[in-house]
Structure formats: C-alpha cells, structure tokens
C-alpha cells in the first residue's frame, strides 16, 4: 500500500507554470529521493504536499485519505536547520510533539543520545556545529507524530566529510525507525547512496521525467560509493539529467 500518493498535481502562478502533471507515490517505510535542478519548483511541490498551498489541479493522498490543502500530516525538515534559538536542544526536539500531541521527554532523550548529542540536551542551538544542528532538526522530525518526513536538501550546507557522516547517520536512524522519507537533493551521489527509489524531475515546469529503483542492498556500506556498479548508476542518471540540459552536481 502506498503511504503518499501525488496524483497529477499541477500548479501555475498566473502565466508561470511551475508544476505540470506531477505524479508519484511512496510506500510505507520507503526512502525516495527527488532529484532535480535547483529552482525546479521543489519548494512549491513541498508546500502542496505539506498542505499549505493548493495545487491548480490534482490531489495528494496520505494513507488513502485525501490531504490536498490540509496541513498537519507531514513533518518537514527545511534546508537550514531552523531551530529556535531561544529553546534548548531538548525543547527544540519536542516542538513537533507539542504542536499536535503530547511531549514524550523519555523518547526524546533516547533519540538525542542515539544521535551522539548526549550532554547537549540543555544547550542552546548557537553552541552546536552545523552538522549537530542538522541532526537535531532531523530528530525533531523523527519524533513528530506524522508518518511522512520531507527532507529538503538537508545536507547541502555541510562540507563533504560531515556530509558523508550525516548520510550514514541518517540511514542508521531511518533503518531503526522505518519511516517514509521523501528526500530532495540535486546531488546524484547522495540520492544513489540513500534511496530505494529515485524520481527525476525535469526543469521548469517540473514533471516526473523518469524513475529508477536502486538495487543496492541494505544496510548500505559506504564502500559501495566506489564500486563499479555505483559508478554505472551515476552515469545512467547523469545522462538522463543531461538530456534536459540542466546543471547538476556531478
């Protein structure tokens, strides 16, 4: 059964067509990446999935229930860590639960410890490094009661080494908690390493260009990054994206 179903979603702002007939789905516990050039209407798509913007046509369903234009069903992790500077790490992490449910400090502390942030529960965000803040932001989503997590280029601001560490960490947490994730990136390698499935979006107006099922077995080892098969995949996807003449991180 699919968790999220996006059916023929289109969106225009006046003459400016941003999304054209976008359809895809995500199964329960699946990790799906949306790969597309920057400025291809991903944030518009996110706002529509998140229910804070209405599509011009099409529907969004979660667990077979229509959620078009209805917020509250999705946990969104923005590109910047977006923590509240006046809240401690513990209280930041609990924000998602506060909005729709009740605070579960015990589980939050457990997650903070698992994220390697033990001892920082009562620190403020400005005392943490970029990677740590991003982890806090991700824990906040994992703790939220919503079943689907939207990750909006969460690692784009990090350096290459921190980035790989964060990707491995993200996979380990995800494998443990098995949530459905929609991950947006314009980095092919990142998408390949993390996802079960990659959906390639075309440039403006965005529409689904192609879908690839990524066969690497889980749990994933960083050694696959250097394997022949991985490079083959990278080439295939790169070719696919180059046809539409867009610049991507290669």
């Amino acid at each position: 059964m699919s968790k999220l179903e996006v059916n023929a979603v289109s969106k225009s702002f006046g003459d400016n067509e941003v999304l054209r007939d976008v359809s895809f789905s995500i199964s329960d516990g699946e990790f799906v990446s949306l790969l597309g050039p920057s400025g291809s209407g991903k944030s518009t798509l996110f706002r529509i999935i998140g229910g804070i913007a209405q599509p011009s046509s099409g529907t969004v369903k979660l667990d077979s229930k229509e959620i078009t234009g209805k917020p509250g069903s999705i946990s969104y992790t923005p590109q910047s860590p977006s923590l509240m500077p006046w809240r401690t790490i513990l209280n930041n992490v609990l924000l998602g639960q506060e909005i729709t449910g009740s605070r579960d400090e015990h589980k939050a502390l457990e997650m903070i410890e698992r994220a390697g942030l033990k001892g920082y529960e009562n620190s403020y965000p400005h005392e943490l490094s970029g990677g740590m803040k991003q982890r806090v932001s991700f824990i906040r989503s994992m703790l939220s009661p919503q079943g689907l997590i939207l990750l909006d280029e969460p690692f784009s601001a990090l350096d290459e080494f921190t980035r790989l560490d964060m990707q491995k960490w993200l996979l380990s947490i995800w494998e443990l908690y098995q949530r459905s994730i929609l991950f947006v990136t314009h980095n092919i390698e990142e998408a390949l390493f993390l996802s079960d499935r990659i959906i390639i979006l075309s440039a403006k107006p965005a529409s689904v260009k192609k879908e690839f099922i990524i066969p690497f077995k889980r749990p994933r080892d960083e050694r696959i990054l250097l394997s022949e098969e991985f490079l083959q995949w990278k080439k295939v996807i790169y070719e696919e994206m180059r046809q539409q003449d867009v610049s991507v991180d290669y």
Partner: peptide
C-alpha cells in the same frame, strides 16, 4: 513552514 505543515 515547518510549523504550518505540522498542523500548528
């Protein structure tokens, strides 16, 4: 946006 999507 995060808060709105979470249903705040």
């Amino acid at each position: 946006h995060y808060m709105q999507m979470a249903g705040a």
